Measured scan of single mutants.
Amino acid sequence: VTLFVALYDYEARTEDDLSFHKGEKFQILNSSEGDWWEARSLTTGETGYIPSNYVAPV
Score class of each variant (00 low, 15 high):
residue 23 G to A: 03
residue 6 A to P: 00
residue 5 V to R: 04
residue 53 N to I: 09
residue 55 V to N: 00
residue 7 L to N: 04
residue 28 I to S: 02
residue 22 K to Q: 08
residue 55 V to E: 01
residue 46 E to F: 11
residue 4 F to L: 06
residue 43 T to A: 11
residue 41 S to P: 01
residue 39 A to C: 06
residue 48 G to K: 02
residue 1 V to T: 14
residue 58 V to W: 13
residue 14 T to W: 15
residue 15 E to A: 13
residue 58 V to T: 08
residue 48 G to P: 00
residue 6 A to T: 03
residue 41 S to F: 03
residue 14 T to Q: 10
residue 7 L to P: 01
residue 19 S to N: 06
residue 56 A to V: 14
residue 20 F to C: 02
residue 23 G to H: 05
residue 31 S to K: 12
residue 35 D to F: 14
residue 55 V to D: 00
residue 22 K to P: 04
residue 6 A to W: 01
residue 12 A to G: 12
residue 30 N to A: 08
residue 4 F to N: 02
residue 8 Y to M: 10
residue 18 L to I: 11
residue 35 D to H: 11
residue 28 I to M: 04
residue 36 W to P: 06
residue 35 D to W: 10
residue 36 W to V: 07
residue 34 G to D: 13
residue 17 D to P: 02
residue 4 F to I: 04
residue 22 K to Y: 06
residue 14 T to P: 03
residue 49 Y to A: 06
residue 52 S to E: 04
residue 12 A to N: 05
residue 42 L to E: 08
residue 33 E to L: 14
residue 14 T to S: 13
residue 27 Q to N: 08
residue 6 A to M: 01
residue 9 D to Y: 04
residue 45 G to V: 02
residue 43 T to N: 10
residue 19 S to C: 05
residue 38 E to W: 15
residue 24 E to P: 00
residue 21 H to F: 13
residue 42 L to T: 07
residue 23 G to C: 06
residue 22 K to N: 04
residue 18 L to F: 08
residue 31 S to A: 15
residue 21 H to R: 14
residue 39 A to Y: 01
residue 29 L to I: 11
residue 9 D to G: 05
residue 33 E to G: 14
residue 52 S to K: 14
residue 24 E to F: 04
residue 30 N to Y: 07
residue 11 E to T: 12
residue 19 S to G: 07
residue 16 D to E: 13
residue 27 Q to S: 08
residue 19 S to L: 02
residue 38 E to N: 08
residue 4 F to E: 01
residue 13 R to M: 14
residue 36 W to M: 13
residue 32 S to K: 10
residue 12 A to S: 12
residue 15 E to F: 11
residue 54 Y to L: 12
residue 25 K to Y: 15
residue 15 E to G: 14
residue 4 F to M: 09
residue 55 V to C: 04
residue 58 V to A: 09
residue 44 T to Q: 03
residue 43 T to I: 10
residue 26 F to L: 09
residue 56 A to Y: 09
residue 18 L to W: 04
residue 16 D to C: 15
residue 37 W to M: 06
residue 22 K to C: 08
residue 22 K to D: 02
residue 51 P to A: 04
residue 26 F to P: 00
residue 8 Y to C: 12
residue 2 T to E: 13
residue 20 F to I: 06
residue 58 V to K: 04
residue 2 T to G: 12
residue 34 G to A: 14
residue 37 W to T: 03
residue 53 N to S: 14
residue 23 G to I: 00
residue 6 A to Q: 00
residue 3 L to P: 06
residue 20 F to L: 05
residue 31 S to Y: 13
residue 4 F to G: 04
residue 23 G to S: 03
residue 25 K to G: 05
residue 51 P to M: 07
residue 28 I to Q: 02
residue 40 R to H: 07
residue 48 G to W: 02
residue 2 T to R: 08
residue 52 S to Q: 07
residue 11 E to L: 11
residue 49 Y to E: 03
residue 53 N to H: 12
residue 47 T to G: 03
residue 15 E to H: 11
residue 3 L to N: 06
residue 17 D to M: 12
residue 38 E to P: 06
residue 58 V to G: 05
residue 24 E to R: 01
residue 48 G to C: 01
residue 44 T to Y: 03
residue 16 D to I: 15
residue 28 I to W: 02
residue 8 Y to V: 07
residue 20 F to G: 00
residue 55 V to K: 00
residue 2 T to C: 12
residue 7 L to M: 09
residue 17 D to A: 15
residue 16 D to M: 14
residue 51 P to Q: 06
residue 56 A to I: 13
residue 55 V to F: 09
residue 52 S to T: 06
residue 41 S to M: 06
residue 55 V to G: 01
residue 47 T to K: 12
residue 1 V to R: 09
residue 3 L to Y: 13
residue 45 G to E: 05
residue 34 G to E: 14
residue 2 T to A: 11
residue 7 L to K: 05
residue 26 F to Y: 01
residue 30 N to P: 05
residue 28 I to Y: 03
residue 34 G to W: 12
residue 56 A to P: 01
residue 24 E to D: 15
residue 43 T to R: 13
residue 48 G to Y: 02
residue 48 G to L: 02
residue 12 A to M: 04
residue 47 T to V: 14
residue 22 K to T: 08
residue 21 H to I: 13
residue 19 S to E: 04
residue 46 E to G: 09
residue 28 I to P: 03
residue 46 E to S: 10
residue 57 P to Y: 06
residue 51 P to L: 07
residue 9 D to W: 04
residue 33 E to H: 15
residue 38 E to Q: 13
residue 52 S to A: 12
residue 49 Y to N: 08
residue 28 I to A: 03
residue 10 Y to M: 03
residue 47 T to L: 08
residue 9 D to Q: 04
residue 32 S to Y: 10
residue 34 G to N: 13
residue 54 Y to M: 12
residue 11 E to Q: 12
residue 51 P to F: 06
residue 7 L to Y: 03
residue 33 E to A: 14
residue 27 Q to L: 14
residue 54 Y to W: 07
residue 26 F to S: 00
residue 31 S to R: 12
residue 35 D to I: 11
residue 55 V to I: 11
residue 14 T to G: 15
residue 10 Y to C: 04
residue 15 E to Y: 10
residue 3 L to I: 14
residue 48 G to E: 00
residue 25 K to C: 12
residue 9 D to S: 08
residue 24 E to H: 07
residue 17 D to C: 10
residue 29 L to H: 05
residue 36 W to A: 06
residue 33 E to R: 15
residue 42 L to H: 05
residue 53 N to D: 11
residue 58 V to S: 08
residue 5 V to D: 02
residue 50 I to G: 00
residue 43 T to L: 13
residue 9 D to L: 02
residue 44 T to R: 04
residue 50 I to K: 00
residue 52 S to H: 08
residue 32 S to A: 12
residue 21 H to M: 12
residue 34 G to Q: 14
residue 50 I to S: 00
residue 20 F to Y: 01
residue 5 V to Y: 12
residue 44 T to V: 02
residue 34 G to T: 14
residue 4 F to A: 10
residue 51 P to D: 05
residue 53 N to G: 11
residue 16 D to F: 15
residue 7 L to C: 08
residue 11 E to F: 09
residue 53 N to C: 13
residue 28 I to L: 07
residue 19 S to R: 04
residue 49 Y to M: 14
residue 32 S to N: 11
residue 29 L to K: 05
residue 55 V to M: 09
residue 49 Y to R: 14
residue 40 R to G: 02
residue 17 D to G: 15
residue 20 F to V: 04
residue 50 I to Q: 00
residue 2 T to D: 13
residue 33 E to C: 12
residue 24 E to S: 04
residue 12 A to E: 03
residue 6 A to V: 01
residue 31 S to C: 13
residue 48 G to R: 02
residue 8 Y to H: 09
residue 37 W to F: 08
residue 8 Y to E: 08
residue 22 K to A: 12
residue 33 E to Q: 14
residue 36 W to D: 03
residue 58 V to F: 11
residue 22 K to E: 08
residue 16 D to Y: 15
residue 49 Y to Q: 09
residue 30 N to D: 12
residue 13 R to W: 09
residue 8 Y to I: 07
residue 5 V to A: 05
residue 39 A to L: 01
residue 11 E to K: 11
residue 51 P to E: 02
residue 46 E to Q: 15
residue 42 L to R: 04
residue 38 E to H: 14
residue 12 A to Y: 03
residue 52 S to G: 07
residue 19 S to Y: 03
residue 56 A to C: 08
residue 47 T to H: 08
residue 38 E to A: 08
residue 42 L to I: 11
residue 20 F to E: 00
residue 14 T to F: 15
residue 43 T to W: 13
residue 36 W to K: 12
residue 7 L to W: 03
residue 10 Y to F: 10
residue 16 D to A: 14
residue 2 T to M: 13
residue 7 L to H: 03
residue 45 G to Y: 07
residue 36 W to S: 06
residue 45 G to Q: 07
residue 42 L to A: 05
residue 53 N to M: 10
residue 48 G to H: 02
residue 10 Y to W: 09
residue 28 I to V: 10
residue 45 G to A: 05
residue 37 W to Y: 08
residue 49 Y to G: 04
residue 57 P to H: 06
residue 55 V to W: 01
residue 19 S to K: 04
residue 55 V to Y: 01
residue 40 R to Q: 10
residue 13 R to G: 10
residue 5 V to L: 05
residue 8 Y to A: 10
residue 14 T to V: 07
residue 39 A to N: 00
residue 1 V to F: 12
residue 16 D to R: 15
residue 9 D to H: 06
residue 8 Y to K: 08
residue 45 G to H: 08
residue 26 F to W: 01
residue 34 G to S: 14
residue 31 S to V: 11
residue 41 S to Q: 05
residue 45 G to N: 09
residue 21 H to P: 05
residue 47 T to Y: 08
residue 39 A to S: 03
residue 40 R to I: 14
residue 3 L to T: 09
residue 58 V to I: 13
residue 26 F to V: 03
residue 57 P to M: 09
residue 24 E to Q: 06
residue 6 A to G: 04
residue 26 F to E: 00
residue 54 Y to P: 01
residue 19 S to V: 03
residue 58 V to D: 11
residue 29 L to C: 07
residue 3 L to Q: 09
residue 6 A to I: 01
residue 58 V to E: 10
residue 23 G to Y: 05
residue 18 L to C: 02
residue 39 A to W: 01
residue 36 W to N: 06
residue 35 D to K: 10
residue 4 F to D: 01
residue 46 E to Y: 10
residue 19 S to H: 07
residue 35 D to S: 10
residue 20 F to R: 00
residue 23 G to D: 06
residue 19 S to F: 04
residue 27 Q to I: 15
residue 22 K to R: 11
residue 1 V to E: 15
residue 9 D to V: 02
residue 54 Y to K: 07
residue 20 F to M: 09
residue 54 Y to F: 11
residue 9 D to R: 04
